[in-house]
Design a protein around this nucleic acid. Structure first.
Length: 627
DNA sequence: ATAGGGTTAG
């Protein structure tokens, strides 16, 4: 790149033969080179050195900027071009400008362009017409777009693909499929668009049917299918497909493939595959781009390896708010409140501006560690110094912070001072405090707020049932469950994952799908007896079903995390660390049980639940029982 | 014309 720029400087200054002397011609070549190298900033730089830019140079720049989605820059240079009066925009100019209007979703500008283009007779041009069709889809006007398409006398494959992609982006997958089936000639783009369209609408079966039926696949087709699984929380399927891509695909994964798979690894806690991808990146000497770096760092953080997450962060050449937010929330998840706070300060020293999500990171760090006053300090810093309007989530965090510390009055006052409507979660945080500190009167008040807000909210039903159960009001708990069933409220089933020998195993509460099921259940019974001898008392207070004590203990002993940990212990070598990921929060009884188990079998157990890590070692947990 | 990253609460 630097060499190219030097060359350009020479073109401008050195006396060369007239045929090569034209700086505009040189600039056009340079700008398209910059564009191909994904350096649109450099293209702008080249353009700015031109003493008298002509239309070709302008068009090259606009095209480069549009391609790299720098739409506001396109608009800026187009306005300059119009002001110059000497240059008259042509079909190519308008194609880029219309793309920018679509990207920026500025309806008035777009319509104005459409008018200009029609007046100048460019609207029959294929490129102009294609971008107009796309623009009206992006404006949410599929009928206008369709009309423009139908009027076309000449169409290329891009016109057809635009139509398919347009219907997909409007959520009308059926219309998209209709067009797709009508197409005589299809390319990779047509297939990828259609697959992604089905995947986004949640129809993974049809997406997969299309994918399997393809005559040939390129990397984008694979990525579309893998990302489709990832986005629909089918993480194991995403990983499996990635493996197939490596083995049989005949195409090399790129940045996008790695990001999707790393995200799946992060969700499942699939550390082995995540590490393998890290090695893959190193072996191929791939540049740790912002996207891949962030995904990799997040994967390590979510797989319990916060030190590796930090190392990846340090390896990255370029970092943005997201990189810092990943690091901060990763440290928070691990209960390293001090680390999270110093990372936050480090970020400020690097003059990176924190956003609302970064503050969620530091606030949750304070919540997990019980640093009440520090948390309140951050909350005020966010509002006063960074002018970030707190969202419900921030309030949820601070209410949680106050409630756990027993400062229930302050928590309730904060809720009533909110400028946004408190949601079930905010009230739920206060309710949690009421439960811990047995403030039943306040609890009743909070309960009525929750029910008023959302009488059908599954979470609140579970929550209420648990509260009633913990207060010993089993009949109320039961009627809560009944109401849930009547209203067909579905409770997310608890699910845990564990990676053994490079494979991820999934466990649901009480499931017997695993081939080693008999051994697992036998081991759990054996472990249960040893635990009781060591002083473990099952905490059945949160089992809200009206069943006898023994049955309750049974229910508890089959929680998905216990199944996963039991399987982990019997299928790995002695002393190996057990790492389990759970989709919900760990229950009180499991938390107690894990402490006992870690001591009895002399294993470190790292359990990631929905919000943080628990590191059990020799009968103790890293969260110090504050979670 | 197609594919991709981060936070919280239950």
């Amino acid at each position: 790149m630097a060499q190219l720029l030097q060359l350009h400087a020479r073109v401008l200054t050195d006396p060369l033969p007239p045929s090569i002397l034209d700086p505009n011609l040189a600039a056009v070549k340079l700008i398209s080179a910059c564009s191909a190298l994904a350096k649109p900033q450099h293209a702008t730089l080249v353009f700015s050195t031109l003493p008298n830019p002509n239309l070709f140079a302008c068009n090259a720049l606009l095209q480069a900027l549009a391609l790299h989605r720098l739409f506001s820059h396109v608009r800026h240079y187009f306005i300059l071009l119009l002001r110059s009066q000497t240059l008259i925009p042509d079909e190519f100019t308008f194609t880029s400008v219309i793309k920018a209007c679509a990207g920026l979703a500025v309806f008035s500008d777009g319509e104005q362009c459409h008018g200009l283009v029609t007046k100048r007779g460019f609207d029959s041009n294929l490129f102009v017409r294609n971008s107009l069709v796309d623009m009206y889809f992006k404006f949410g006007l599929p009928n206008v777009a369709r009309l423009l398409f139908d009027e076309m006398t000449v169409r290329d494959i891009v016109s057809w693909n635009t139509l398919v992609a347009g219907y997909c982006s409007c959520g009308d997958v059926r219309a998209a499929r209709g067009v797709f089936d009508q197409m005589e000639e299809k390319n990779f783009v047509s297939w990828s668009t259609m697959i992604a369209g089905y995947a986004r609408s949640g129809d993974l079966v049809v997406a997969r049917e299309l994918f399997d039926g393809m005559p040939e696949r390129n990397v984008v087709c694979w990525n579309a299918m893998i990302a489709g699984y990832s986005q629909n929380e089918k993480f194991s399927e995403a990983i499996e497909l990635f493996r197939q891509m490596l083995r049989f695909g005949g195409v090399a994964p790129n940045d996008v493939s790695l990001v999707s798979v790393l995200s799946a690894c992060a969700h499942l806690g699939a550390l082995d595959l995540g590490r393998w991808i890290d090695g893959f990146i190193k072996r191929r000497a791939m540049e740790l781009s912002l996207f891949v770096g962030n995904a990799l760092s997040d994967m390590y953080a979510k797989c319990g390896c916060i030190a590796d997450a930090r190392q990846v962060f340090d390896r990255m050449r370029e970092r943005d708010v997201i990189s810092w937010s990943i690091l901060i929330s990763g440290l928070a998840m691990h209960g390293h409140a001090d680390g999270a706070i110093s990372a936050f300060n480090e970020m400020l020293e690097h003059e990176v501006k924190p956003n609302d999500i970064t503050f969620m990171g530091v606030l949750s760090a304070c919540t997990h560690a019980g640093l009440v006053d520090k948390g309140l300090e951050f909350f005020h810093l966010m509002k006063d110094k960074f002018a970030i309007v707190p969202k419900v989530e921030h309030y949820g965090c601070v209410v949680d912070l106050l409630s756990r510390a027993g400062r229930l009055d302050e928590a309730e006052n904060l809720i009533s001072s909110m400028e946004v409507t408190p949601n079930v979660i905010v009230w739920g945080a206060l309710l949690g405090g009421c439960r811990i500190y047995k403030d039943i009167a306040r609890g009743e008040r909070v309960v009525s707020h929750i029910l008023e807000l959302d009488p059908d909210h599954s979470g609140s039903y579970v929550y209420l049932a648990n509260v009633y159960a913990s207060l010993g009001r089993l009949d109320d708990a039961a009627s809560c469950r009944l109401k849930m069933r009547d209203n067909q409220v579905v409770k997310t089933p608890g699910c845990s994952w564990i990676e053994v020998n490079n494979r991820v195993y999934e466990f649901f509460m009480g499931d017997r799908y695993h081939p080693e099921s008999d051994r697992i259940y036998a081991f759990i019974r054996e472990l249960g007896m040893k635990m009781k001898l060591a002083g473990y008392v099952p905490d059945t207070s949160l089992v809200s079903q009206n069943i006898d004590e023994e049955e309750k203990e049974n229910v508890l002993s089959l929680h998905s995390e216990k199944l996963a940990v039991a399987f982990g212990i019997i299928s790995t070598e002695e002393g190996a660390m057990i790492r389990v990921v759970k989709n919900l929060r760990v229950c009180n009884d499991c938390h107690v049980a894990m402490k006992f188990i870690s001591k009895i079998v002399s294993r470190e157990i790292v359990l990631r639940d929905r919000s943080r890590f628990h590191h059990f070692k020799e009968g103790k947990c890293s969260c110090k029982d504050y979670w």
